[in-house]
Amino acid sequence: MEVLQLLISGLSLGCVYGLIALGLVLIYKATETVNFAQGEVMMLGAFLAYTFVNVLGWPFALGFVATLAVMGVVGALLERVLMRPMLGEPPFAALMLTIGLGFVLRAIAGAAWGNEPHTLRTPFAGDVLRFGELVVGTENIAIVLGTAILCGGLYLFFRFARVGIALQAASQNQLAAFYVGIPVQRVFALVWALSAMVAATAGVLVAPVSLIDPLMGFIAIKAFAAAIVGGFGSLPGAIVGGLIVGVVEQFASRYLPPGFGDTSAYIILLVMLVARPEGIFATLQRKKV
């Protein structure tokens, strides 16, 4: 029974890692940049939802939609203002820039909402469901359901929208995609918007479990482990990777000596990089000479 309990909390935690990793992979696939500020973008989304729902008193659904809309704009703006000048620069520069961005966003959040933790009012938190001896928090169920719905939506989007195909092309060869008339820059802005919306969803889903404060974005470091386990180029891989990292973390904190719970994600990451750097869903190959 304990095992099942741990499995469920691990899966719901893993969904959060998976969603953050999904945002990372979206941006990486299209632009070959890794957004080290993904966790901070998530944090911003959670704070926005808090502002709409708790401070302004809007109904949850409206607040959530508004959060998505605002975060989409924020994501596109970040791409337009910060990332576009880095187009064609070495990947290292863009990576450093997103690190700087993370620090700036944290300071902005601290200035706007203060450092003390906040609780988001949601319709799905605080209750438990009992299945025999098994006790499951409704917020955990909400996380898993929310993730499933989001993934389904994204799948349909990439499968059927023209933009999805443009994105595929841009990610394979920026210059060639540009030459055949794909608006590469607009595609990138769109990807950033999409990724910010995914991150905001993660933020809202995780808010009842971990409180909202400027430092909540640090869990994104664990999402890197998820993305790498999944192969860093595969969207389903990111979710699967997140689930693996989440479940392992729950079991490690329960059964291993203290310290292993917190580091399990990093250990998985390093082991994965040494043993199978292409991830479980291999999409990367050697550079061509």
């Binding site: 880095m86 520069a93 450093m96 690190i99 620090f103 944290r106 300071a107 601290g110 203060g114 400027p214």
Partner: peptide
């Protein structure tokens, strides 16, 4: 109000980093 912002110092670090990367790599 400005001086007491938590995380101000790392925030300024980050901003400087961004400015250098964009304008003087």
């Amino acid at each position: 109000a400005v001086a007491q912002i938590p995380g101000l110092e790392p925030g300024i670090f980050g901003a400087i980093l961004i400015l250098f990367l964009i304008y003087e790599p």
